[in-house]
Design a binder for these strands. Structure first.
Length: 473
RNA sequence: GGGGCUGUAGUAUAGCCUGGUUAGUAUCUAAGGUUUGGGACCUUAUGACCCCGGUUCAAAUCCGGGCAGCCCCA
């Protein structure tokens, strides 16, 4: 008889229910008492810390320094850049009962409050480039269905905000940060992404150009994993971010902003998980392996001793040593599989006799007998293989789901199959609105410009713009 | 924005339609004992009707509102 109350009870093919269950049972997050808010539990927070550690090094390399700006933003700040104000207005939450004269918004993003300071700090071309990042929480009062990590009213993120003296530098910075995002997500999270520009309708409110990285979830919906914006001089003009150039001429700064959020943890869960639960890519896992001794009365002492020896040898992989005696080995296997630990090392009396251990891969469930003397060599090799395997599996999936369409009908059908569908279209906002209407809410995830012109699937006009259309989170 | 479903120990659930003993079961947790190579077993104990109001002699059950979660459509 199987006991169903413990492990993951939903198959991954039923992604929505599966996701909720894994988030809870792998102890990534819990629901908060307020709609759309979540509690990030240590298992998920350690993932976030690993991401932070990685990205802080990137920031350092790029000469970006961390800082912190206030959570509250005067309402009037939002009104200074018209498109920004319009774009964020529906999602703004305010605090009203303060002794301030005006309403105070909870930041949904910090362009306005940061650039207010920037305008004071920047006087000369010598002050540029100015490159600041902050790790913080933001509030966006979503009316849509919320879901842990994927859409919450509060989430954690990083937002980088740079000012340059030339347009080229800003453009370059937008591109290089998008590339850094791609690199991070692919190398650390093992999630393959598409990279490209956002359409007019989808770009950031107030940006001149937005670059995005997008991945595809198992249910055929795309997920935006990070964005990088070239703000041009839009905010500089609204906030008076000016400098005197080398010719003593006053100029507006050229600005960028870029960010990714804890949403990455949701993506990670959906992309790699399986029917047993979470599967963590080794590079993002805090505990890379778990050691489970197989304890029988007569041999337990020796087995434990050996286990501790191996635990010490593998200390740099942060092993979890599950020496509890009140759970059977089988119970422990399930437990740590559900939580996504990449490798499991089993040590029992039989192994002791053969001077070996049994190593089990989380991604393939493959059991490998490894001679004791080879463990230290074998573990990093296996972790590396798991990392690659997870990426390759996800890449194969993504590649298999990219298609193209020449008619609206074809587009509709292929989107229904859970694909990202390439189609020529006129990027004027209206055409995309039409396609959105016709395809039950699908929009372009990103666009690219083709050398050869094609026919817009809606207007029939010639165009060089190709949109990647799909449903999205 | 529109429509629908749900809420009972930490978790999963029975009971609700047709109001009426001490709210049942499994798991978790705690204690003790036997176990341990893919979720072992026995004994004992603790623990719950989302909140506010209404109807009634009597509400987990019926009604209204709120809060939260989920689904579908735009």
């Amino acid at each position: 008889m199987k006991k169903e109350t413990q492990g993951i009870t939903v198959k991954k093919e039923n992604l929505v229910d599966w996701y909720s269950e894994v988030v809870q049972k792998a102890e990534l997050a819990d629901y908060a008492p307020i709609k759309g808010f979540m509690i990030i539990r240590p298992n998920a927070y350690s993932i976030w810390q690993n991401i932070q550690d990685y990205f802080n090094k990137v920031l350092e390399k790029k000469g970006v320094r961390n800082a912190y700006f206030p959570l509250l933003i005067p309402e009037s700040f939002f009104k200074k850049e018209a498109k920004h104000a319009e774009g964020f207005n529906p999602e703004l939450a305010y605090i009203k009962n303060t002794d301030e004269g005006e309403k105070l918004a909870l930041r949904p993003t910090s362009e306005t409050i940061m650039y207010d300071s920037y305008s004071k700090w920047i006087r000369s071309w010598r002050d540029l480039p100015l490159k600041i990042n902050q790790w913080c929480n933001v509030i966006r009062w979503e009316v849509k269905q919320t879901k842990p990590f994927l859409r919450t009213r509060e989430f954690l993120w990083q937002e980088g905000h740079c000012v340059f003296s030339t347009e080229n530098e800003a453009e370059e910075n937008m591109n290089e940060m998008a590339e850094e995002y791609k690199k991070m997500v692919e190398e650390i999270l093992a999630i393959p992404v598409l990279i490209g520009k956002k359409s007019e309708g989808e770009k950031f409110a107030g940006a001149q150009t937005t670059m995005t990285i997008e991945s595809l979830m198992p249910d055929g919906k795309a997920l935006q994993m990070g964005t990088s914006h070239n703000l041009g001089q839009n905010f500089a003009k609204a906030f008076n971010v000016k400098f005197k150039d080398q010719n003593e001429k006053e100029q507006y700064g050229w600005q960028t902003s870029w960010g990714f959020s804890t949403r990455l943890i949701g993506a990670l869960t959906m992309v790699h998980g399986d029917d047993k639960g979470l599967v963590l890519p080794p590079k993002i896992a805090h505990n890379k392996l778990v050691i489970i001794p197989i304890l029988f009365d007569k041999t337990s002492e020796k087995v434990l001793k050996k286990s501790k020896e191996i635990e010490k040898k593998l200390a740099k992989f942060n092993p979890i040593a599950d020496y509890r005696t009140d759970y059977s080995p089988g119970w422990k296997y399930h437990e740590w599989e559900m939580k996504g630990i990449p490798l499991r090392i089993e040590i029992g009396p039989n192994d002791l006799a053969k001077k070996q251990v049994v190593i089990v891969r989380r991604d393939t469930n493959e059991k490998i007998s490894v001679p004791e003397k080879n463990i230290e060599k074998e573990v990093p090799k296996l972790l590396d293989e798991i990392q690659k395997n997870l990426f390759n599996k996800a890449k194969k999936f993504l590649d298999s789901r990219i298609d193209k369409a020449e008619t609206l009908k074809e587009l509709k059908e292929k989107i229904k199959l859970g694909k990202i569908v390439k189609a020529y279209f006129i990027d004027d906002g209206k055409t995309e609105d039409y396609i959105k209407e016709a395809t039950e809410g699908s929009t372009s995830r990103l666009i690219e410009f083709s050398k050869t012109a094609g026919i817009c699937i809606h207007t029939g006009q010639k165009t060089n713009t190709i949109g990647y259309f799909s449903k999205s989170y």
